[in-house]
């Protein structure tokens, strides 16, 4: 990749989608994994809504996230005045990979959405992360069983959407158009506080964050945002190469997403 997208345009596009979400849904929430993309989403929401994130942010917490993640969560929640909801998911020793992400994260989310009646959920996935995520729309309904009917998605013509009458909730994807490097350029430009796990320690860093169980660090000397941007300009390795659920078997991501995974 030799050219960079216009950050101003990406920002405008995302702000537009966030404001659409706010106008269209009565009970909106955002997912915050403490990762770079969902943090950028919150920074964009602060711009869209004049300084304040006007919806609750959900962290699905299985209790085995990295310690750094918890410290970071506390710091930013206070600094940005976030309305944080922690959804506890229960870890099971007998599960791993697809079953783990499926039953832990997805079930915890399902339970919370039922309890709180959220009808719109902002999720910060990007098209360049994974082929399956590239198939998503900006507004994507999940049916009553929480499923993504990817084989019959409603049309989104000129960005005008359907009414989603039969859905349990609608996923809103304001960052679909962003590339990995754009997120980092934006972090730099806007000086956004970021989870320390992304920066190199003893020659390794995390490029994509999950929980301690299934996230593997990559070799890297990049210890600042600038160095990460430089690294990404030359890398030929996919971002989620350290995420086990993407690789486990062919089409795992598709199955996870159909069941309600992020």
């Amino acid at each position: 990749m030799a050219e960079l997208q216009d950050l101003d345009k990406l920002e405008e596009n995302s702000i537009y989608i966030l404001r659409e979400a706010k106008a269209k849904f009565k009970n909106l929430a955002g997912l915050w994994s403490m990762g770079k993309d969902s943090t950028v989403m919150l920074a964009l929401a602060r711009k869209a809504f004049f300084g304040k994130v006007p919806f609750p942010v959900i962290h699905i917490d299985n209790g085995i996230d990295f310690q750094e993640t918890y410290e970071y969560r506390k710091k930013l929640t206070d600094e940005w005045g976030l309305d944080l909801i922690v959804a506890k998911s229960i870890m099971r020793d007998d599960l791993s990979g697809i079953k783990c992400c499926g039953s832990n994260k997805t079930d915890a989310l399902k339970k919370l959405l039922d309890e709180r009646g959220f009808d719109g959920l902002i999720v910060s996935i990007r098209r360049d992360e994974h082929g399956i995520r590239a198939k998503e729309r900006h507004f994507s309904p999940r049916d009553k069983q929480f499923k993504w009917n990817y084989d019959d998605q409603p049309p989104e013509v000129w960005d005008f959407t359907s009414k989603f009458e039969d859905s349990s909730h609608v996923r809103i994807h304001p960052l679909l158009q962003w590339n990995e490097i754009d997120t980092w350029r934006y972090v730099k430009r806007e000086n956004i506080p970021i989870n320390p796990l992304y920066f190199s320690k003893d020659g390794k860093r995390y490029r994509s964050l999950g929980c301690t169980q299934c996230t593997v660090s990559v070799e890297s000397r990049a210890s600042t945002v600038e160095e990460i941007i430089e690294e990404l300009k030359t890398t030929d390795i996919a971002e989620r190469s350290g995420r086990m659920q993407d690789k486990e078997k062919e089409n795992v991501m598709q199955r996870l997403r159909a069941l309600g995974y992020m």
Binding site: H130, I132, K135, N179, Q254
Partner: peptide
């Protein structure tokens, strides 16, 4: 084409974008 059905069936099911 990254859906299972697309790859096995050799057709495009839904729109995608690539840069």
């Amino acid at each position: 084409d990254s859906f299972e059905e697309e790859r096995e069936g050799g057709f495009t099911l839904d729109t995608t974008r690539a840069q």
